Simulated scan of single mutants.
Amino acid sequence: MTAQNARPDARFTAVRLGRVSRQVVEQFQRQLREGNLRPGDRLPPEREMAAQFGVGRNSVREALRELDLLGLVESRHGEGTFVSAPSPEALMTPFRAVIELSSTAAGTVMEFRRAFEPGVAALAATNLTDAGRDRLHAALTDFETRVTQGVTEVERADADFHLMTGHATENAAVIGVHTALYTLLRDVRSRVTSARYGPSDSAVAGHRLIYEAILARDPEAAAREMRAHLDDVSETLADFC
């Protein structure tokens, strides 16, 4: 993508009293939502932005650091600061340190999964396309084959099945959040080194039940099977944490 300066419509206004850097960040996010700033745009120099916001350059720098942490901007040496498209990995960055330091990380993530993923499965059943079905079937087959044969990367195949469930929703917002969740989940899984998979485990069998409910285009059954599956997974993780 060819870099270009921020569009004329991306106009910043003076901020009020309070934590000015936070107000700078909020204005930036609003300009993104309204389409006045887009990935690849070059931001004005710090001095110019400070004048537009009516704040000191230190406040602008603090805001840019926060935006960089959120994956919304990137600095290029000798070129300036550019708007970037946030990736799932960048979305999870602010939470990773908290998760890694938490003694209840696995339980916290599983609580979120139980609140979020049944709805994902239900939407997948509602919006299922032929392409979504084929991707989900391929992921299920890969997972079951790896479990049965006891080969490597079973956890990766497990995660891929859930990721394809998200993709089957055909909803860009759901796919983005779901992918970000599994980026974080990889970090948690790496701490549960003793977890094992077995063909007779109900948690393993849960994947097929979820698949069959989605394939039947039954949202209620898909949500129910996903919820039961995550309950099984939570019990397994509790045994190894």
Rank of each mutant, 00 (worst) to 15 (best):
V25Y: 07
G54F: 08
A213P: 01
N58A: 14
A195W: 14
G71I: 06
T169R: 03
Q29Y: 08
R65A: 14
I210S: 00
V120T: 04
Y197I: 07
D218T: 01
V98F: 15
E34V: 14
H229R: 00
A228R: 11
A125D: 03
S103T: 13
E155G: 12
H137C: 03
D187C: 05
E34D: 15
L209S: 11
T126N: 04
M110W: 11
A223Q: 07
A10G: 10
V233L: 07
R57D: 09
E155M: 14
D130W: 01
L140H: 05
T169Q: 10
V177L: 12
T81C: 08
P44E: 12
P219E: 09
T126K: 14
R96M: 15
E26I: 07
A50D: 06
Q149G: 01
V60P: 09
N171V: 08
V233G: 06
S87Y: 06
V174Q: 11
E117Q: 10
P88L: 05
S234C: 11
G107L: 03
I210F: 02
P199I: 02
G107A: 08
R191V: 06
V120Q: 02
R7G: 10
E66Q: 15
I210D: 01
T2G: 15
A3W: 06
L237S: 03
M1W: 12
R217W: 07
L70S: 06
V233M: 00
L209A: 13
R114Q: 13
M226K: 06
N171W: 06
A238G: 10
G119E: 11
R196C: 10
H229G: 04
F116T: 06
L209R: 15
A3S: 12
F82H: 00
T169S: 02
A121I: 05
E225A: 13
P86S: 04
I214Q: 08
R11I: 10
R113H: 07
G78M: 05
